[in-house]
């Protein structure tokens, strides 16, 4: 099968490492929130103050912003923009790309200096790139992770929920 179509499986151990990395990043920068997204906009891990209800929409929009900026980069004959910064009155978002696959974002307020966020995010992206590499190298089959009867159960659920 086309390798681009196989799922990216994040094992428990790697997910724990990502959580730790993000929680250090929030703590050390004094930021409010850190998110790791897949380029498709799906949230892999989030860390920070409280639970954000809007996190799914936030993921989709940030990934959209990044994908759109990549197209802008191409028009400027750049491969992509590795980092993006969005400045608000109260909160700011700093976004960095990890190996064309993942997107790391830090949400912080004016109490945190952008320079510090930049430096520590760079350090975190290096760590996360190593985690991503390990995730990619593990070739677990779907059945190993989900169980062989998953597909049938999923089809039953789809039939049950997707109706007028």
């Amino acid at each position: 099968m086309d390798p681009q179509l196989t799922s990216l499986i994040v094992p428990a151990e790697e997910a724990a490492q990502i959580e730790e990395c993000l929680s250090h990043l929030v703590e050390d920068t004094g930021g409010n929130y850190a998110l790791l997204l897949d380029k498709s906009g799906q949230v892999i891990v989030s860390q920070g103050d409280g639970i954000r209800q809007d996190i799914t929409a936030l993921g989709a929009l940030i990934a959209g912003t990044f994908a759109s900026s990549r197209e802008v980069a191409k028009l400027l004959r750049e491969k992509d923009f590795r980092m993006l910064f969005q400045q608000g009155v109260r909160e700011n978002i700093f976004i960095a790309l990890i190996e064309e696959q993942w997107i790391l974002c830090v949400i912080f307020n004016k109490g945190t200096h952008i320079g510090l966020v930049k430096v520590l995010t760079k350090k975190a992206t290096d760590e996360l790139a190593a985690v991503l590499e390990r995730v990619r190298q593990q070739h677990k089959s779907r059945d190993e992770v989900l169980g062989s009867s998953f597909r049938t159960s999923m089809e039953d659920t789809i039939d049950l929920l997707f109706k007028d």
Binding site: S7, L8, V10, P11, A12, D38, S40, Q42
Partner: peptide, 15 residues
């Protein structure tokens, strides 16, 4: 590609 998060026991697909 779909994303399977084993720790959080989540599967995400984009259509």
């Amino acid at each position: 590609m779909a994303l399977i998060n084993v720790a959080a026991r989540e599967i995400h697909c984009k259509i």
